[in-house]
Each structure stands twice: as C-alpha cells, then as structure tokens.
Design a protein around this nucleic acid. Structure first.
Lengths: 116, 116
DNA sequence: CGCATATATGAAGACGTGTTCATATGTGGT
DNA sequence: ACCACATATGAACACGTCTTCATATATGCG
C-alpha cells in the first residue's frame, strides 16, 4: 500500500472523526435527507452542515442528489455502512483476549494505562 | 444511538484519521510488532510512536502484549481489520457516474439526481 | 548492584481545523 | 421581474493536537 493511499484513507477517517460530521453521516443511514432536515436533526447551523457536507462529498462518504431546489444526501455504497457497523461492533464487543502469539510471563496482557 | 456512543465512535475514527497513526495500525496487520520495529517501519521517532500507541491502546484499536522488556502491539479483534478493508474497498470502488468525466478531487456538485 | 536497552511520559510550540458571521449563488413561485 | 426559500462559500478566530526535546520508568544482563 502506497504512501498516497494511506493519506487518502486517513483523510476519510479524519472526516468521520468529528462528532458533528459523524452524526451527519449517521443521519443519512435511513435514506436521502435534505440539508435543512439534516441541520435540524443534528442541531447545527445550516452553514456548518453545508461546510461539512462539502468535505464528506469530496471523500465520497456521502453523495448528493438534487430535487428542485433541495439537495438530498445519502450513502454512496454499502461499504460505508458496513464499515460503520463493523466499528460499532468492535466498540460494543466485550474485552476479548484472543489469539496473541507473544504472551507475557506474568499473564497480565491488558492494554491498560499504567501509572507509576 | 446515544450521544455518548457517537462521541466514542468519532474518537476512534479520529485516531485513525492521522496518517502516522494509521500507518502504525496498518503495520500491525501482519502480526504483533514491537515498538522499536514500529518506529523503524513507519519512520517516526520512538517517542512519537509511543505517544500514538497510548491513544490507540486506549481506544482498543491496538492491544499490547509484553515479552521480556519488549512490548508487542497487534489488532485486538477482526472488526478493526474488516473495517479497514471495507473502507479500502470503498475508496478503490469506481465512482458510479457512468460516462461523467468531471474531476473528482474537487468537491464539486455532481448534479446526480437520486430520490428515495 | 550498576549499566544498557526498551518503552513511556511531560511540557511547550507550531500548525491545522471546526465554528461563526456575513454573503453569494441558485431555484421556484406569484 | 421580483421575492422567498434552500444551499453554498469566504474570511477570521478560538481551540485542539501533532510533534519534538528532555526525562522517567521498567526490565534484563554481566
């Protein structure tokens, strides 16, 4: 995987890393939503939503469709939806210590932050 | 989905949104890697890698296992890997614009009409 | 026990970015 | 045409955070 692909991938992740932007994407899971309705649902100003939508569109995390003077946004393909559900699964998953080749001798392998 | 879950989800995405951190995670795809080896592979200082690893550990994007005086990092479960492959698939997927030849790196309005 | 190795932590600065306000563009109705 | 509505854009600021440098902690070896 080339350096440039990693950057693009990171950029996509970065966009989803903002809570407001993520809420915008999640609000589009049910189907196409207009910009005004989006602003209402996530409780943000129309301007801010539009700014975010521009970025989400650029990375193709959302696609836009016009109908009259309204613009509806929705998910472009199933990968985005699958990825979201995957990460949600990951977070709701209970601590599972699965297959780790390297095991420490004292048996405490949890990634908890140690304070002195 | 509650507000707090969205924040946690966004935080996880945010961590993957940094190219260096993403490279660190990707470098762990093949199996457990020590911190020093990671720093070498991604070309970052040991200190910086450690800083990033702390965050990745906290969100359980990576898990740590000690072996002697070395600490090996690896993916905690398959969801992280699946999510990565999903988004990679999304990016490598051809854009469904048919014969449209607009430039793509600019967030321009694509004018596609798609209603529910 | 000291010393070298391996990783973690703390503080500070440079940089990016999310947000707001104001304004522009586009679209339909009367 | 004008006006009301819907969305997009631009500039500026406040804020976070990625990075570096220095140092601390932990572990194994002779």
């Amino acid at each position: 995987m080339v350096d440039d692909d990693v950057a693009a991938l990171a950029e996509t992740f970065r966009l989803l890393g903002d809570p407001n932007r993520l809420r915008i994407v999640l609000s589009c899971l049910d189907g196409p939503v207009g910009v005004g309705a989006l602003a209402d649902r996530v409780g943000l100003s129309q301007s801010l939503v539009s700014h975010h939508l521009r970025l989400l569109r650029a990375t193709r995390l959302l696609k836009a469709g016009k109908a009259g003077r309204q613009v509806f946004y929705s998910l472009p393909d199933c990968h985005v939806r699958d990825m979201l559900t995957n990460l949600i699964d990951h977070m709701t998953e209970p601590h599972d210590h699965g297959t780790d080749a390297e095991n420490d001798d004292d048996g405490r392998d949890d990634g908890e932050v140690r304070l002195r």
